[in-house]
């Protein structure tokens, strides 16, 4: 199972930092993600971007976790030499984060 089975996501830039919003598809999925989708796990997943640190904020009322990845945009905005200067792709990328231990009952019903 991947994160995309449990949640949707969106990302954007804040200067040289990116934020990724992960929105759980159910209260049960949110509960599981709160315990398992840690800032460290997200930092490891995006190690290729060398974040200086990753911070996590929870907004339970809308079943969302907000991750801020610091210094991941190669200077950000106009300075970045990457294709994805503004971190717009990270929200789609994080949906492939493997969640092998998540109970199958949490997966999105198609």
């Amino acid at each position: 199972m991947n994160l995309g089975d449990l949640a949707s996501a969106r990302s954007g830039d804040k200067g040289n930092h990116a934020n990724i919003v992960v929105v759980a598809r159910s209260s049960e999925a949110f509960g599981w993600l709160q315990n398992h989708l840690t800032a460290q796990r997200v930092a490891d997943f995006f190690a290729g971007l060398s974040p200086s640190r990753v911070e996590r904020f929870a907004v339970p009322s809308v079943r969302a976790l907000n991750f801020v990845l610091y210094d991941v945009l190669d200077g950000g905005g106009s300075l970045s030499l990457r294709t994805d200067t503004q971190g717009k792709l990270l929200g789609t990328a994080i949906l492939e984060l493997p969640c092998p231990d998540a109970p199958s009952s949490l997966a999105r019903q198609e």
Binding site: S8, R10, H17, N19, V21, V23, F57, V59, A64
Partner: peptide, 17 residues
């Protein structure tokens, strides 16, 4: 939908508080 609004709610936000 609640989903489209939630995704935008925290778009380009750092500390939600």
């Amino acid at each position: 939908t609640v989903q489209t609004v939630t995704e935008q709610l925290l778009y380009e936000v750092g500390d939600p508080s």
